[in-house]
Amino acid sequence: MNKSLLMIGLAVLLSACGEKTEKVAEAPAEAPKAAEQATAPAQQAAALAVDKAVLAEEAKAAVQALGSTLKGELEAAMKAGGPVEAMGICHTKAPEIAKAVSTEKGLQVSRVSLKNRNPDMGVANEWQTKVLNDFETKKAAGEDPATLVHAEVVGSEFRFMKAIPTAAVCLNCHGTDLSPAVTAKLSELYPNDKAVGYKEGDLRGAFVVVKNLVQ
């Protein structure tokens, strides 16, 4: 009888020791998993930051391509026939240049404004209007308009905008004191034109670059 009780006691004691040993062995296995869960958001955030920076550089290159090509065309037109000739370039060539750059870069590149000239193009949508208003606020606070940029990822879409300051040469077609010839041409090409009344340094709009990140 005593021998039986002793055997049962030993079995219970060994069983209890086995449970403690098993629990201690499991603890280290869960620690790496917890560490992975803690570092995963940080790694994702770092990857997103790198991607966003790369995308912003791509967008800047696209804006530079559109801006420099359009500027060259306008300067040549100004020399050939003055502001009226330049308006013809804006009317016909600007959309073609934007389309060509978009195709070459694999991005959607355009220009928008709160006071658009072409009723079929350049009309800012909701998020673009918000950014343009933000640019205006920053300019009013003393920031250089030439440095104003915006970049964000919303869902599967990368969005980039760069402000367009009004240069002195732009006032020939966008200023407050337009020649009769320019006024007549504007009435012909853009009967509902809103893009006038600017002064040098005003924000005339922005370049927009959009990329769908889901291919």
Rank of each mutant, 00 (worst) to 15 (best):
V50P: 04
E152M: 04
K115P: 02
L13K: 10
P191E: 13
G88T: 08
V101Y: 05
K60N: 11
E104M: 12
S15Y: 09
P83S: 13
S156V: 06
A168Y: 07
V149Q: 12
T147M: 11
V63L: 10
I89D: 07
P191V: 13
K162V: 00
S102C: 10
A25Q: 13
E136L: 15
S187V: 02
V169F: 11
E26F: 11
E96R: 11
V101F: 07
W127P: 01
K194A: 10
A76R: 12
E104W: 03
A45G: 10
E104Y: 09
T147K: 13
E126N: 09
G67A: 06
K115Q: 15
E26T: 09
Q215F: 05
A86M: 10
T137W: 00
R159S: 08
V131D: 01
E75C: 00
A167F: 03
A45H: 06
V182F: 05
V196Y: 01
A151R: 07
L74V: 14
P41L: 13
L14Y: 01
A45M: 13
A59W: 02
V24R: 14
Y190T: 03
A167W: 00
A65Q: 12
N116T: 06
E152Q: 13
R204Y: 06
A53G: 15
Q43W: 07
V101Q: 03
E96N: 04
R117I: 08
A56S: 15
D134M: 04
A94Y: 00
I97C: 05
A167C: 03
A206P: 05
N172Q: 15
L107V: 04
A77Y: 05
A42H: 11
Q215L: 13
A167K: 08
R117Y: 06
